[in-house]
């Protein structure tokens, strides 16, 4: 755990508040359609921040020393890639194993590790996802096409504005000869939220 204590009532940045004020007023007045806005913002999903989460995961797969550093101090290990921003502070990496599957929930854009993953998908922000992920994670995972063995423990992590979680998915089988770059292509956004698995080589 971190040595620092962080107040959970940390204020939102001024710019975020101004954008929220504009968006909520314009929506209430019927001047912008929130659904159209969501669709538009969804198209920028991969256009925000450096989004180097897949590279972080691939390095952890090939480099045990890096993986150790990543699990001990994710913020510093991610910064080794040279894209440390104030938004990627206090990252915690959760390792999926044959026995434990981690998944992450939060409804707030600001609680999403967008610096490594880009913008959150619309479903991630929806309250049904958050509520159901906590009550019935196995059911939610099945809807995402992830069927886990009964024995696998599922841990659901609630992101906060101060701690953002990144899931380290299991390295897929049949990837022994692959280099870091090729491995990074197998790491999907969903696998780093914990609602998917990393892809198989040559698979879809």
């Amino acid at each position: 755990m971190s040595d620092h204590h962080h107040d959970h009532d940390a204020p939102l940045p001024d710019t975020v508040l101004r954008v929220k004020a504009l968006e909520s007023l314009l929506t209430e007045k019927g001047l912008v359609d929130p659904a159209a806005l969501d669709v538009l913002i969804d198209t920028y999903e991969t256009r925000v921040g450096p989004r180097n989460g897949a590279k972080v995961v691939a390095r952890a797969w090939v480099d045990d020393a890096y993986k150790k550093r990543l699990l001990e101090d994710a913020t510093a290990a991610i910064a080794e890639f040279g894209f440390q921003g104030r938004q990627s502070e206090h990252m915690v990496v959760l390792e999926n194993t044959a026995k434990v599957h981690n998944m992450v929930v939060c409804t707030l854009c600001s609680c999403y590790p967008w610096a490594v993953l880009g913008l959150p998908p619309v479903w991630y922000k929806s309250s049904p996802y958050r509520a159901r992920a906590v009550i019935d994670p196995r059911g939610v995972l099945e809807e995402f096409g992830v069927a886990l063995d009964e024995e696998v423990e599922i841990r659901v992590w609630d992101s906060t504005a101060e701690i953002r979680y990144l899931v380290l998915p299991q390295r897929p089988g049949g990837t022994e000869g692959m280099d870091e770059e090729a491995l990074a292509d197998l790491v999907t956004r969903d696998s780093m939220i914990g609602v998917g698995l990393a892809g198989s080589p040559g698979g879809v």
């Binding site: 912008v32 806005l37 913002i41 921003g85």
Partner: peptide
């Protein structure tokens, strides 16, 4: 590939502007 944003609020401000324009405001 198009516009890039350093933080999510920037994409939101951008999208709102496009949407207000599209609606003819």
């Amino acid at each position: 590939d198009g516009p890039v944003f350093a933080e999510p609020w920037q994409a939101q401000a951008f999208a709102m502007t496009l949407e207000l324009h599209r609606a003819g405001h």
